[in-house]
């Protein structure tokens, strides 16, 4: 500042001195006050704050994720699942487009694995087959009007029997039981399952008796299917996974007919005591073994 800038009104030398010494500081204070006011507005007013943070928020999150990944995952997980649900609801097409490369790869991997297993099964079938069997298969194929390859493919499809229940038809009490793991019925809740199965069977048969009188023959859930074969005093429930061979129903029927015919009286008089029906367990176990090895 030079003397020309001193206002004429400052006749008082003290005022002149004050002006010379403090004007610069006063100007700086005014600037700082304006700056504080601006920052105050930025922090306290939502719109301003968003505007201020916007350029750095991505960087901030990136740093936070880099430094404490687990902590961020923990905090964001509940919001993420909700956000995904909302996004799927509101922008299904976009989500499908975004997920397609991943899902496509997953499906492709699963199909490849399944095909590998399938091919291994076919190879196994071919390796263990004698020439005579091949000749026999070609005869059956011709008789059925399908190719040999189709027959081999059919035999190679995965199929496994898990459990077999013989249940008293009226009471729903378990008469005999066999399972793949060799567990006792007590350790496998077989008595309760037998009861519930009977209740479900009774419910379906009563509810639909007017429209379609008959008996429940199959229950399907997830990968498992329960095939039911009913006779007068008992019913046989076979729980299996996969696609059953063509003669499966016949084999279940034959097994049951065999047991029912042999133990007809004991099944008719069954009152919950299985001690005199222990012999039935063997045919059930044998059936599991045969179907496992076939």
């Amino acid at each position: 500042m030079n003397n020309r800038d001193i206002p004429n009104s400052f006749d008082d030398p003290f005022k002149q001195l004050k002006h010379l010494l403090l004007t610069e500081d006063q100007n700086r204070i005014q600037q700082l006050e304006a700056e504080i006011q601006r920052l105050h507005e930025q922090l306290n007013e939502k719109d301003h704050l968003i505007e201020t943070l916007q350029p750095v928020i991505a960087e901030l999150l990136e740093n936070k994720i880099r430094n404490s990944k687990a902590e961020m995952a923990e905090s964001l997980a509940p919001v993420m699942s909700e956000a995904i649900k909302v996004q799927i609801r509101d922008a299904k097409e976009d989500m499908v487009d975004a997920m397609y490369p991943i899902v496509g790869r997953m499906v492709s991997k699963a199909v490849t694995e399944a095909m590998k297993k399938f091919a291994a099964n076919i190879n196994q079938q071919l390796n263990k087959t004698f020439n005579f069997s091949r000749w026999f298969r070609s005869l059956i194929a011709r008789f059925k009007g399908v190719s040999q390859a189709e027959l081999i493919m059919r035999d190679a499809l995965p199929f496994e029997i898990q459990r077999v229940f013989l249940i008293a038809k009226n009471s729903g009490l378990l008469v005999s039981y066999a399972n793949r793991e060799g567990l006792s019925p007590e350790n496998d809740d077989a008595h309760i399952i037998g009861g519930m199965l009977t209740a479900i069977k009774s419910f379906v048969e009563t509810s639909f008796s007017n429209d379609d009188p008959g008996e429940l023959r199959e229950i399907e859930h997830s990968k498992s299917t329960i095939r039911i074969d009913s006779a007068i005093y008992s019913y046989l429930a076979v729980v299996y996974n996969g696609i059953p061979p063509e003669d499966f129903s016949k084999s279940v029927r034959e097994l049951h007919e065999n047991i029912h015919g042999r133990f007809y009286r004991k099944l008719r008089d069954h009152d919950g005591d299985n001690s005199h029906l222990k012999e039935i367990e063997q045919p059930l176990k044998s059936y599991l073994e045969v179907t496992q090895n076939s």
Binding site: S171, L174, S176, G272, N274, K278
Partner: peptide, 9 residues
Amino acid sequence: MNSMNQKKI
């Protein structure tokens, strides 16, 4: 097979 006596109640 366990020979316990089952009863439906």
